[in-house]
Design a protein around this nucleic acid. Structure first.
Lengths: 257, 257
DNA sequence: AGAATGTCAATTGTCAACAATTGACATGAT
DNA sequence: ATCATGTCAATTGTTGACAATTGACATTCT
């Protein structure tokens, strides 16, 4: 439901919706590797798989009741989504996220979202603007009714609506991946307590101002408002995370040119 | 392993014996799928694989002298690098790039690069600044000596140096992938003619101004200069591309909610 | 004739077995 | 004792075969 289709193109073959297979038991949405990736990814997101934990193919295969082939591909899918890290001959691990990595993540997400806001404001498309307006309404409604999780989800969807409204397929694709990981890092433990009534009010307000700016084709205002919203969100999330865990795993870096 | 010998659908009797294990010799720097991905990716970049061309696993397997497993994983790697697109049960295709996709690509790259410039300017690290300075020197030198390809390459490396200098690992990773695809789209045909002496002079100048801004910790100036450089580059590249191909079946966009 | 349906080759998805590599432990030399 | 070397179990890389699905062609019915 929240998986994208990317920029679609069909060279020669004619499109035809396919029905998933029905092996195993339970669901039948998509191919086996995708199902495994979704389930395993959910486990990682939910924290059932600890950061840095090794993922042994055979174990997973037995656990999911499939052979190693689909497991292997699922791992690659999760690698693409930056949820796992694969070392050439040494196995796959749940990608550890240092505090800095999370900050990096938020910053990139913000940069992309601001590009989206600017683009969308430059030439707003009615249907997409309406979608965003609906999200704003949802947010307003959720300000009062406490439910930090729902509020965070809708906020994410609003940002996603902006990414979608930009008409930039690549941007939407990247934003979705990053949003998934963002959700992961924030939902991971039990934060979201920082979403106080006041914070929610401000967030909903900024989102609506962004919407208004887009409506009147004012890119700078849209960027300014959304930028403040996202920066505030980042700061709060980081503060909460750094308070929760004092010790952080390691990250990565490297490469010279 | 005898890579680089397969054409599209020409089932030449492959000299590979059933259990022909001719890759045991020497050392394997990387895994098989990565090697295949690199080679196949190079073919796509070089234009030997046409846009939208279907990639049949068995054909590739015979061509590369390996079985379908590694080919399959190689395709996923290329999918991750956005060079191919995989349709669930219908096969993999060389990802076609419409003019709009290229524009999207450039815009995202710019957004990320500007974030990098801003971050780097906020807290410049001497060694990274020096690397960028070296690239600027290279550019200055290449302004006179006409060699559009080298100039474009160094420009890319300079942008990459900024991404690296930001200290944001995720940003660097994404930028690298996008840069690869950017190079692909521009080098693809024989453009680069737009890199006139005047353009090169301006580019080198803007890059140095960016460097100076970073040196004096002036994020706004850095963003302004690099932004103009990249926007101009995008405009020129797009103009050239749209001029080059008038008669190409264009792709299209589609999006999900 | 035209549309619906059945059949079939081509191709992708999946599996289980085989081969190669890694890291650790044990053994032995200095 | 410490370090080097050899062996071994665990795990990943690779393969070929089998099953399922797709799209197209052929057939049949109205």
């Amino acid at each position: 439901m929240q998986f994208l289709e990317s920029t679609a193109m069909t060279p020669v073959p004619s499109p035809a919706p396919s029905t998933g297979n029905d092996r195993g038991r339970g669901f039948s949405p998509r191919t086996l590797p995708e199902q495994v990736a979704e389930e395993l990814g959910a486990e990682i997101v939910a924290g059932r798989r600890k950061s840095g934990e090794r993922l042994v193919e055979l174990e997973l295969a037995k656990g999911f009741g499939v052979s190693r082939g689909p497991i292997r591909e699922a791992i690659r899918i999760l690698e693409r989504r930056r949820l796992v890290e694969v070392l050439p001959r040494r196995g796959a691990y749940v990608r550890p996220l240092s505090l800095k990595s999370v900050a990096d993540l938020f910053n990139v997400r913000t940069a992309l979202s601001l590009l989206a806001a600017r683009t969308m404001a430059s030439s707003p498309v009615e249907s997409y603007v309406e979608t965003l307006a609906r999200r704003c309404d949802d947010l307003d409604e959720l300000v009062a009714h406490g439910d930090p999780i729902s509020f965070a989800q809708i906020t994410t969807r609003a940002v996603r609506a902006i990414a979608n409204g930009s008409g930039n397929g690549l941007l939407l694709e990247l934003s979705t991946d990053l949003a998934n990981q963002t959700v992961w890092t924030t939902i991971w433990k039990e934060p979201l307590d920082y979403l106080t009534l006041e914070v929610r009010r401000t967030t909903a307000d900024l989102m609506r101002k962004t919407l208004d700016a887009i409506r009147r084709s004012d890119p700078d205002a849209a960027v300014a408002n959304l930028g403040r919203l996202l920066d505030d969100d980042r700061d709060r999330a980081l503060a909460t995370l750094s308070a929760i865990r004092r010790q952080t795993p390691l990250a990565n870096e490297a490469d010279g040119s």
